[in-house]
Design a binder for these strands. Structure first.
Lengths: 334, 334
DNA sequence: TTGTACGCGTTATCAC
DNA sequence: GTGATAACGCGTACAA
């Protein structure tokens, strides 16, 4: 509400001086006395620099957009928390958008052309291809979360291989040898990396991965039923399932019950990512917790770098290792 | 990227004319020919009016902030969808904030003083009192969602009484007479209204509500366990529970199992609000679905009214009645 | 019918 | 040390 000119008038000085004092301009060493008067008036009037005026002046908004497919998803909620916290620390405001509504390139470039945001944090949908992603972001300053485009720097991801490896090893340690993987869509980079981790763990245990034990139908709850149907109807079905996403894992639990498999007695299930809901399934779901909060922090830092000109390097968040949350959905065969 | 002056130069006209043509100024009836040229150039260059420049000019941002306690909550996610859809329709941009980070009045008035937003949509936390709410919002243009302050117009809510009545009646119809209520905190207006609806239904069936059957510990999952402990340890415990929130209902299911009560055989449970997670509990949770999406739409409309000067009237969203989602957590006693 | 000039609030570049 | 002034992009009252 209060403007520089208001303070200037009351202090009997010029707007320029007020601006310089308030911004600690080193070139200006104002009289301690006037300086004091200006500061006091500013705080009394509750002066706040006008956002639009600054944005106009600097051609920079200090606002970034975070685009995620679905706010409901606990996965994204924790990511969002990390993004918000780090943004506040760095002086950014976050504009939150679902990719549903920011689905086409127009929306993105519009936000940019209108000068509403400086850049984007984009967590694509599972079924997003490199092409659709490239088309979507155009030449906008974007940091990709959990995906990557060739020759385009600036992306951050979690250690999907470690996640899947950790989950698989946990099952191996409990005597399971026939382990299935309920994976995300093959278009998804994270799904491919999780599959690598799963196979790595299997091979390290002297087991050769079988195509009959892997489905790639998606991360959503709804994709769980057909996946379980398929994998459990193979010859020699698995005794345990690594589910690449905690939401899909809930669906697996429900559908397994529907088919008459008792978890964990007949079938063990472990999910990647943790969520509060995993405490309230039956049986409670064992999961591998991943550092999504830290991922959000890294993403903001990477975008800041990108906006500052320095090319952000790709980054896999490894500062916090995958963490096993043992509940009751995995049985020991030994 | 492209400015009015760019178009003006290429079209060989003045910026003023370009502006008027692009804004369909009725006072200006430009030559169809120049008009055509301007429009073509604008679309070719992908012209977008600069957000900050407009905001500075009009002292209005067409941006509103939506403040909710927790994005994870499916309740708020659906509300958010409604808010976003209606905002886009009305030309608003939505700034999403958790109330965690917007906890004190400074944050709110700061957003306002900086001219970042025109107004707020505020869904307070369950434990927010009228005092803390009043302090929080100050004189800011706010529409309250699911709460109210005396003598302060502008709030929207769902029909909490109808919700609780519907849930209670459903249990009554199935022969239950001893029905408990696991309610939100007594500070919460919605909790008080739900309690009214619950009692109404009971009394209409000739049953007088008993204090021994009501807890008021909160809407969160974590509040469920102590609530169930208490209500089930009374003399003559209930055969069915109305849980005032779907998340708390998940906690009720889990804790009931922990205590050895089989749902629905020993104890029936019905939750208010629906969420996808209710499909994946055991047993699947019967709920009363409330029109949260429509609530979001109404909230935006109310804020628009408030910002336009016309005092928004209080509004209870009744366009969509409570909808029973029958799953398997309620048994019939008859 | 169209061009010119001013102001929105801020900062930076000059003079004094 | 401090004050005047131009500029950021837009819309509009006024002049032509």
């Amino acid at each position: 509400m209060a403007r520089l000119v208001d303070i200037a008038e009351l202090a009997g000085v010029s707007v320029g001086l007020v601006s310089r004092v308030l911004n600690d301009d080193p070139a200006t060493r104002a009289t301690p006395e006037t300086r004091e008067r200006i500061m006091r008036l500013a705080s009394e009037l509750g002066y706040r620099p006008h956002y639009a005026a600054r944005a106009l002046k600097f051609a920079r908004t200090n606002t970034i957009a975070l685009v995620v497919p679905d706010l409901t998803n606990a996965f994204f909620a924790e990511l969002t928390r990390g993004v918000e916290d780090e943004s506040r620390r760095l002086g950014y405001t976050v504009l939150l958008g679902r990719s549903e509504s920011l689905t086409d390139q127009t929306q993105i470039s519009r936000l940019l052309d209108e000068g509403r945001v400086d850049g984007f944090l984009l967590q694509g949908r599972d079924d997003e291809t490199t092409q659709s992603l490239t088309r979507l972001i155009g030449r906008a300053p974007v940091v990709l979360i959990n995906s990557r485009i060739e020759n385009r720097p600036g992306n951050v991801m979690i250690d999907d291989r470690a996640a899947a490896r950790t989950a698989t090893e946990y099952l191996l340690e409990r005597g399971h040898r026939k382990i299935g993987l309920i994976n995300g869509l093959p278009t998804s980079l994270t799904a491919r990396r999780r599959e690598e981790g799963y196979k790595e763990a299997l091979q390290a245990a002297g087991i050769s991965p079988s195509a009959d034990r892997i489905t790639r139908l998606g991360y959503e709850v709804s994709s769980a039923a057909p996946a379980v149907d398929w994998v459990m109807s193979r010859r020699d079905p698995p005794s345990a399932l690594v589910v690449a996403n905690v939401n899909a894992a809930l669906g697996v639990l429900t559908h397994a019950r529907h088919l008459g498999h008792r978890v964990p007695k007949d079938l063990s299930v472990i999910g990647i990512h943790d969520a509060w809901t995993a405490d309230h399934t039956w049986p409670p779901l064992t999961t591998v917790r991943m550092p999504l909060y830290e991922l959000g922090i890294r993403a903001v830092a990477a975008l800041k770098d990108r906006l500052s000109g320095c090319d952000a390097t790709d980054h896999i968040v490894r500062s916090v290792p995958p963490q096993l949350i043992e509940r009751e959905s995995v049985a020991s065969l030994t």
